[in-house]
């Protein structure tokens, strides 16, 4: 006997639509009287409503609930008039913190409305915290509320083993780990060749979707590797230059330092390019990345010379060359486009 009265906690996830649709399907299964079916859509808000950020969350939750209610009516089709849809924001009167608080809030709601089962979205993630599903299921077990995990197809984060792009990831990961294994081992020794292939196979299967955020391409990725190897001598040269300059400053008895915080808006994509740029900036003594929020870097610079170098953006151009090619490297310096400024310490 399927559940007629279900509770569906919602969050903005890639699978929320499918979860709602699964909830409607199970509740309406086996030709039941649609009048008995109750679908309660709830959004848990982790902040108290009177805080300003809480207000945002409430508005956000309301819009999500409206959309979800429309989905339910859409999925229910001809039954949509007879079944009951309730929408509710829970947790706006209290401070929901961990999975236990969420489970308690859901249990209280389910008790109040006499609901039988919770349909969980596998990607359920209220607030901005870590994945919630497993701890939440454990806590729901503790409070004795039945739950059912919606079978959804996830496309974005959990790709299926074989899909578009996953084959090239698998292959690239295999090559990289096999190459690394043979570099450490002996490429002429059969035992190493066999064990290396086994290890690389395991690594490729288990880690390929973690390693690459975008699938590697046949031409682009090797090209980037080649450009990266061109970048390394340049980076080492920059490091030596900066090292000498900073060494002179430190060894001068008067120590003419002029430390300042600067903000530089980098023209590189978040992820690996930004990591490469921030790492290179930190590697050169005299500049130190304190924060990296998307394209905005907060850089602490020790001397005026180091700061000028940073504002000239030579490293940024080099990183752009590595990831986007030669044409992209010819860009205005951060100073020219007004993306560089000195800021006070209170803006950290």
């Amino acid at each position: 006997m399927a559940d007629r009265r279900v509770l569906v906690p919602l969050s903005e996830s890639v699978t929320v639509r499918q979860t709602v649709s699964y909830a409607v399907q199970t509740a309406l299964a086996d030709d039941v009287d649609p009048a008995e079916v109750q679908i309660h859509l709830v959004v848990a808000v982790p902040y108290e409503a009177d805080l300003p950020e809480g207000q945002d969350k409430i508005e956000f939750a309301t819009s999500l609930l409206e959309r979800a209610a429309a989905w339910v009516r859409e999925d229910a089709g001809s039954h949509s008039h007879s079944l009951t849809i309730e929408t509710e924001i829970v947790g706006d009167q209290e401070y929901l913190f961990g999975p236990r608080d969420y489970a308690k809030a859901f249990a209280a709601y389910a008790d109040e409305h006499d609901l039988e089962c919770v349909i969980l979205d596998p990607e359920y993630q209220p607030g901005a915290t870590a994945p919630m599903l497993q701890p939440l299921e454990r806590e729901l077990d503790r409070v004795g509320l039945r739950y059912d995990e919606a079978p959804v197809e996830r496309s974005a984060r959990h790709e299926r083993l074989v899909g578009p792009g996953s084959r090239s990831r698998l292959f690239a990961m295999f090559l990289i780990s096999y190459g690394f294994y043979l570099t450490l081992g002996d490429p002429t020794y059969t035992f190493d060749l066999v064990t290396g292939a086994a290890v690389a196979g395991i690594v490729a299967v288990t880690l390929s979707h973690v390693t690459f955020t975008t699938a590697p391409t046949l031409v682009g990725s090797p090209l980037r590797v080649v450009r990266f190897t061109l970048y390394i001598p340049y980076l080492i040269w920059e490091i030596i230059r900066a090292n000498l300059a900073i060494s002179l400053v430190i060894l001068r008895p008067s120590m003419p330092i002029d430390p300042k915080l600067t903000r530089v808006n980098a023209r590189v994509r978040s992820g690996l390019p930004l990591l490469a740029l921030a790492n290179s900036i930190t590697l050169t003594p005299g500049t130190l990345t304190v924060r990296a929020n998307n394209q905005q870097l907060i850089v602490h610079s020790l001397t005026q010379v180091a700061r000028d170098d940073l504002f000239e953006g030579s490293l940024e151009r080099a990183v752009r060359f590595v990831f986007y090619g030669r044409e992209a490297a010819a860009t205005a310096t951060p100073k020219e486009r007004g993306d560089a400024e000195v800021i006070g310490g209170e803006e950290l």
Binding site: S247, I250, I257, T282, P285, L288, V290, H300
Partner: peptide
């Protein structure tokens, strides 16, 4: 601490 981090990387 910030200034010292610069030189620690040397």
């Amino acid at each position: 601490v910030y200034a010292r981090s610069h030189t620690a990387s040397q």
